[in-house]
Amino acid sequence: MSNSPPTPPQNVPSGITEKLTDQSPNVLRDIARYADELAEHREREAQLAEQDEQDEDVEAEADDLPDDVPDKATITVKEINDHRYYYWQWREGETIKSKYKAPVDSDE
């Protein structure tokens, strides 16, 4: 271990590093624990927000379902004669059912 203090990461604001250098080893360990827990908390919040966004997309898609298409249907792209089309697709027992939705835009 070196006798000189460690170099702070470049992305840590200088005001924070200055305050840290004044702290005792015990307080620094507490701060490190807190920072780790806070990082995990923010990562969880970001994951939950992303999941909520995905759930909203699925709900919006489900609102778009025709009456004769079950909620469990997913959208599939089929290519027929060099043209691409969206179809609702779902399974009923051993059979896979499909229902036409719309053409795929040419810029996708």
Rank of each mutant, 00 (worst) to 15 (best):
M1S: 05
M1W: 07
N3R: 13
S4T: 15
P5Q: 07
P5G: 10
P6E: 07
P6Q: 02
T7E: 06
T7C: 02
T7D: 09
P8V: 07
P8M: 08
P9E: 12
Q10K: 14
Q10Y: 03
Q10T: 05
N11Q: 13
V12A: 06
V12I: 12
V12E: 01
S14L: 01
I16T: 10
T17W: 02
E18C: 06
K19D: 12
L20V: 14
D22L: 15
D22M: 13
D22F: 09
Q23D: 05
Q23H: 05
S24D: 10
P25M: 02
V27N: 08
V27G: 01
V27L: 14
V27R: 13
L28F: 01
L28M: 05
L28R: 12
D30H: 03
I31H: 12
I31D: 09
A32M: 08
R33G: 12
R33F: 11
Y34F: 15
A35H: 06
D36P: 00
D36K: 13
E37C: 08
A39V: 09
A39Y: 14
E40L: 10
R44K: 11
R44E: 12
E45K: 06
E45W: 02
A46D: 08
L48F: 04
L48H: 05
E50P: 00
Q51L: 10
D52I: 06
E53D: 07
D55T: 11
D55R: 03
D55V: 01
E56P: 00
D57L: 13
E59Q: 15
E59P: 03
E59V: 07
A60N: 15
A60Q: 12
A60T: 03
A60H: 10
A60S: 06
E61D: 01
E61T: 15
E61V: 09
A62H: 14
D64Q: 13
D64G: 09
L65Q: 06
L65M: 05
L65R: 04
L65H: 08
P66W: 04
P66L: 09
P66Q: 03
P66N: 05
D67A: 06
D68A: 01
D68M: 02
P70L: 10
D71G: 14
K72N: 13
K72S: 06
T74E: 09
T74A: 02
I75Y: 00
T76A: 11
V77W: 03
V77Y: 04
K78Q: 10
K78S: 06
E79P: 02
E79G: 02
E79Q: 05
N81I: 01
N81M: 02
N81G: 07
D82M: 08
H83Q: 12
Y86L: 04
Y86I: 01
Y87L: 08
Y87W: 11
W88T: 07
Q89H: 01
W90L: 09
E92H: 08
E92V: 07
E92F: 03
G93C: 06
G93M: 10
G93L: 10
E94W: 07
T95I: 14
T95V: 14
I96S: 02
K97F: 02
K97H: 13
K97Q: 14
S98P: 00
S98T: 11
S98G: 00
K99H: 07
Y100C: 04
Y100S: 02
K101E: 04
K101D: 08
K101G: 03
A102S: 14
P103H: 09
P103G: 04
S106I: 11
S106C: 00
S106R: 13
D107R: 04
E108M: 11
